[in-house]
Simulated scan of single mutants.
Amino acid sequence: MSIQTTTVGSYPVPDWLSALPSEQAVIDATRVVFDTQRQAGIDLPTDGELYRFDVNHPDTNGMIEYFVHKLGGIDSRVGREDTAAFRSKHEMVFRSKPAAVVRGPITEGVLNLAEDCARAGKVAGGPFKFTLTSPYMLARTLLDTHYHDFAALNMAIADALAAQAADLICDCVQVDEANIPGNPADAPIAAAGINRVLDAVKGQKAVHFCFGNYGGQTIQKGEWAALISFLNSLRADHLVLELAHRPAADLDALKELDPKIGVGLGVVDIKVNHVESADEIARRIEAAEKKLGAGRVKFIHPDCGFWMLKRSIADRKIEALAKGRDRFEGR
């Protein structure tokens, strides 16, 4: 079976959407993002995560706030004492204040991912992937004044997201996690929450992992070797892994990945402006297949989302991605 091309999630927001935002403009921009990917040769595109577009924060992709500000039991109003309490935990060095405060039992609130997904589906023009942030990553950004137990908080968020995931109509649902690679000790907690969401998904199930992509910077320190048992515990069809910006030893570690779980190979480095050539992409696929075995690579993709890159660079990178796959397969 041919290796499939996909993107990870976010895509550069069109300048005209930021300048003249409206609900119709978001729909039009979503259509443009889908069409751009399909024309470049992407088999399984995303909506660019434009369903999270916020006119007040057009340069971010809403990975945290879009979810936690809509869930019930969570207060987006963060006071001085809340900030001080969050900082005292020293859990997230790149956040100086919590995304929100948990003040009661978490419910689905006004989050409506089924509606978001359906809106994307109307302009997708074919198979597409829908993404959402993992319970563990969301939990790490919150100040909890209700559960007083991180594992319980994680599962409460997981239950709310699982209820939403059950109604998503798309070809693939991808759960995104960029915090656990730097915190492998929390693997059992993270796996429990992610699996709760995956079990609710009716279509293809994927999980994306990277070492952080905060303005193009690596946030987490770690290696894939420390996470193999965790990865093997996930009830996913395939993983979407950052590997282009990683040392070669990380690829060696993936030899121990359960054969039932497909490998999604990051072959485009989103932390640099350099546009890879088709030959570079093909060589990265070849190197992975030599180490992991023929047929183990099911998808190739960028390491992470493109939200912080210029549109002209992102467009050329995905074109190279598809051409590199074709070159590797001798098309």
Score class of each variant (00 low, 15 high):
residue 61 N to H: 09
residue 185 A to K: 15
residue 180 I to Y: 01
residue 280 E to L: 04
residue 292 L to N: 11
residue 63 M to Q: 10
residue 133 T to K: 03
residue 254 L to F: 10
residue 285 I to E: 02
residue 250 D to G: 07
residue 79 G to D: 13
residue 173 V to G: 04
residue 270 I to M: 15
residue 204 Q to V: 09
residue 175 V to P: 00
residue 151 A to D: 07
residue 115 E to H: 07
residue 330 G to A: 06
residue 314 A to R: 14
residue 23 E to K: 13
residue 127 P to R: 10
residue 325 R to G: 12
residue 229 S to Y: 00
residue 23 E to S: 11
residue 138 L to T: 01
residue 166 A to W: 08
residue 326 D to C: 13
residue 328 F to R: 15
residue 324 G to A: 13
residue 144 D to F: 04
residue 264 G to K: 00
residue 218 T to F: 10
residue 76 S to H: 14
residue 54 D to Y: 14
residue 65 E to H: 08
residue 131 T to A: 09
residue 300 I to D: 08
residue 306 F to H: 10
residue 253 A to P: 04
residue 310 K to C: 01
residue 9 G to E: 00
residue 262 G to R: 09
residue 178 A to Y: 13
residue 51 Y to L: 02
residue 56 N to K: 12
residue 124 A to M: 02
residue 178 A to E: 07
residue 316 R to W: 11
residue 208 H to M: 05
residue 98 P to M: 10
residue 82 D to K: 08
residue 87 R to L: 14
residue 46 T to L: 03
residue 317 K to E: 09
residue 99 A to R: 07
residue 147 Y to Q: 00
residue 21 P to V: 02
residue 110 V to G: 02
residue 201 V to H: 00
residue 239 L to S: 08
residue 142 L to C: 00
residue 162 A to Y: 05
residue 104 G to A: 14
residue 16 W to V: 00
residue 230 F to C: 03
residue 94 F to D: 12
residue 123 V to K: 06
residue 4 Q to K: 15
residue 106 I to C: 03
residue 2 S to G: 05
residue 65 E to Q: 07
residue 29 A to Q: 14
residue 152 A to Q: 12
residue 298 K to A: 13
residue 280 E to T: 12
residue 18 S to A: 12
residue 204 Q to I: 06
residue 73 G to C: 11
residue 316 R to Y: 06
residue 80 R to S: 13
residue 59 D to Q: 09
residue 243 L to C: 05
residue 158 A to Y: 03
residue 206 A to I: 08
residue 252 D to H: 05
residue 202 K to W: 01
residue 124 A to F: 07
residue 91 E to W: 15
residue 273 N to A: 14
residue 294 A to T: 14
residue 88 S to N: 12
residue 110 V to C: 07
residue 74 I to R: 10
residue 19 A to G: 02
residue 235 R to I: 06
residue 248 A to T: 12
residue 124 A to T: 03
residue 171 D to Q: 14
residue 183 N to L: 14
residue 202 K to T: 05
residue 269 D to G: 13
residue 99 A to E: 03
residue 297 V to A: 07
residue 229 S to A: 10
residue 173 V to I: 14
residue 262 G to L: 06
residue 327 R to T: 10
residue 302 P to V: 12
residue 131 T to M: 06
residue 175 V to I: 15
residue 224 W to H: 04
residue 4 Q to L: 15
residue 324 G to H: 12
residue 188 P to E: 03
residue 143 L to A: 02
residue 196 R to L: 02
residue 46 T to S: 05
residue 83 T to S: 12
residue 184 P to K: 09
residue 13 V to I: 04
residue 199 D to S: 07
residue 305 G to D: 07
residue 29 A to F: 15
residue 47 D to S: 11
residue 296 R to Q: 09
residue 121 G to L: 00
residue 160 A to T: 02
residue 56 N to V: 01
residue 228 I to D: 01
residue 22 S to Q: 09
residue 187 A to R: 04
residue 106 I to S: 02
residue 25 A to V: 12
residue 176 D to K: 08
residue 163 A to N: 04
residue 118 A to H: 09
residue 37 Q to A: 04
residue 132 L to P: 08
residue 297 V to I: 15
residue 31 R to M: 04
residue 231 L to E: 03
residue 204 Q to W: 11
residue 136 Y to P: 00
residue 15 D to C: 00
residue 198 L to C: 01
residue 116 D to T: 06
residue 88 S to L: 12
